[in-house]
């Protein structure tokens, strides 16, 4: 069970601003999904290794050879705010 308080913390970790109304709305829905996920507890996974990757691949590399970068214009073309070639972000504090 997650509480509205837990949701505030998860919202913070996710950088999603949640209003009181949002938390009211989301909490029961998220709990119903988590209830459903409770199904997982029933599976016997003793001695089973997790599958992080579905294919048993390893050792895929790039060689250390430069390729063309984007132009500065292209790099900045989608940034809502920029200044002197920098991307402009909000203040830190």
């Amino acid at each position: 069970m997650i509480t509205k308080k837990d949701l505030e913390h998860i919202g913070w970790l996710s950088r999603l601003e949640l209003s009181e109304e949002d938390r009211e709305k989301y909490t029961p829905k998220l709990n119903s999904v988590l209830d459903y996920f409770g199904e997982l507890d029933k599976a016997d996974t003793g001695g089973v290794e997790p599958s992080y990757h579905v294919m048993p691949m390893s050792n895929v590399f790039r060689e250390d050879v430069p390729i063309a970068s984007l132009s500065q214009e292209e790099a900045l073309s989608n940034a809502p705010k920029n200044q002197d070639g920098f991307i402009k972000a909000p203040r830190m504090m």
């Binding site: 790039r62 250390d64 430069p66 390729i67 500065q72």
Partner: peptide
């Protein structure tokens, strides 16, 4: 190294403009 760790961008940026 000549390139970055996960892409082919050159590491030789120290005298170049930002985001180039």
């Amino acid at each position: 190294l000549k390139t970055k760790v996960f892409c082919g961008c050159s590491t030789d940026y120290h005298n170049d403009p930002p985001n180039s």
